[in-house]
Amino acid sequence: MSWVLHFLGTGAAHAVELGSSSAVLERDGRPILLIDCGPDTLDRYEAAYGEPPCALYVTHTHMDHVAGMERLFFRLWFDSERRGRTRVFLHADLLPWLQMRVADYPGALAEGGANYWEAFHLVPCTRGFWLDGLWFDVFATRHHRPGTSFGVALRGSFVYTGDTRPIPEMLAVHGSGTGCIAHDCGMVGNPSHTGVDDIEREYDAALRARLCLYHYGSAADGEALAARGYRIARPGGRIALDPPPAPRADAG
């Protein structure tokens, strides 16, 4: 059985040529979970898989990570076989923000008669969630206001940080072992994002060797990170993952 993390886009919000940062967990070539849905994500997803996602995890509600949910609503609402079936997982603290961002506009349809969330199967969570017999851990990250951004991890296989400053204390818990760590990183950090100098200050060599950097500011920045010896995610690229062990007895 093969496990892969497929990066649909890898760019920071302004790096439109790299695509909105998002990734898909694949098992034996089949998509299991889409992580984030920016403005161009649905097009990239459907080009790769020929259908809309069956499950989506939202790391935070900045528009370069959720703006594609309006189009996804229309895609699902007008397909009677898919309406109400795509699961949307998110930390419960994000629900008010996501409601304001994508679901509160008066009249989801011009014709009326449609409640936004009826197109989806909404699954708020706190510690994590079950999907396809797998337990995914959810953990807080450091991006703007506390309690507004959350990463996701499949223990022993991968960690996806979402937008964040360095989080060594979280990776000590959720990134232990040998799995891939997909981490926000640009050439220069700021109060909301990690820079390569932060990576080299906050993480030891063993952890840095497991990083796959994304959310960089340009193709040139990505190549500069690669020239410093880091593995970078590239738009459309796939990273092989270790298979996850059986879920822990205390999961859920």
Results as ranks from 00 to 15, higher is better:
Trp97His: 15
Arg155Lys: 12
Glu17Val: 01
Gly229Asp: 07
Leu5Ile: 01
Val159Thr: 04
Pro53Trp: 05
Asp104Glu: 12
Phe150Val: 08
Ile199Trp: 06
Ala23Leu: 08
Gly237Val: 11
Ile232Phe: 04
Ala114Pro: 07
Ala249Met: 07
Gly50Lys: 01
Cys180Trp: 02
Arg201Pro: 11
Ser157Leu: 02
Thr141Trp: 11
Leu211Lys: 14
Gly29Asn: 08
Ser192Pro: 06
Cys37Thr: 10
Arg142Phe: 10
Ala108Ile: 01
Met187Asp: 09
Pro243Leu: 02
Pro168Trp: 10
Trp3Ile: 01
Met1Thr: 10
Val102Pro: 08
Ser192Asp: 12
Arg30Phe: 03
Thr10Asp: 01
His144Ser: 14
Arg145Phe: 14
Arg142Leu: 12
Arg201Lys: 12
Ala226Lys: 13
Gly175Arg: 08
Asp104Ile: 08
Leu8Ile: 02
Met1Asn: 08
Asn115His: 04
Cys37Trp: 06
Pro245Ser: 10
Ser176Leu: 07
Thr164Cys: 13
Val159Ser: 00
Ala182Phe: 02
Arg75Ala: 13
Ala172Asp: 13
Leu211Ala: 15
Ala227Cys: 01
Ala153Tyr: 00
Ser21Pro: 03
Ala224Gln: 11
Gly222Ile: 07
Ala110Trp: 06
Tyr116Asn: 08
Val152His: 13
Val173Met: 10
Ile35Asp: 01
Ala12Cys: 12
Phe73Ser: 03
His183Tyr: 09
Val138Met: 04
Gly9Pro: 03
Thr148Cys: 15
Pro191Phe: 04
Pro243Phe: 02
Ala13Ile: 13
Phe120Asn: 10
Arg155Val: 10
Tyr57Trp: 09
Tyr105Glu: 00
Ala249Lys: 05
Asp28His: 08
Ala182Lys: 01
Arg155Glu: 13
Ile167Arg: 07
Glu118Ala: 00
Ala205Ile: 12
Leu95Asn: 11
Leu90Thr: 13
Ala219Thr: 02
Pro124Cys: 01
Gly112Met: 09
Thr178Ile: 07
Arg85Glu: 14
Tyr160Leu: 09
Gly177Leu: 06
Val138Glu: 03
Ala249Asp: 06
Val159Gln: 00
Ala114Phe: 07
Gly147Ile: 11
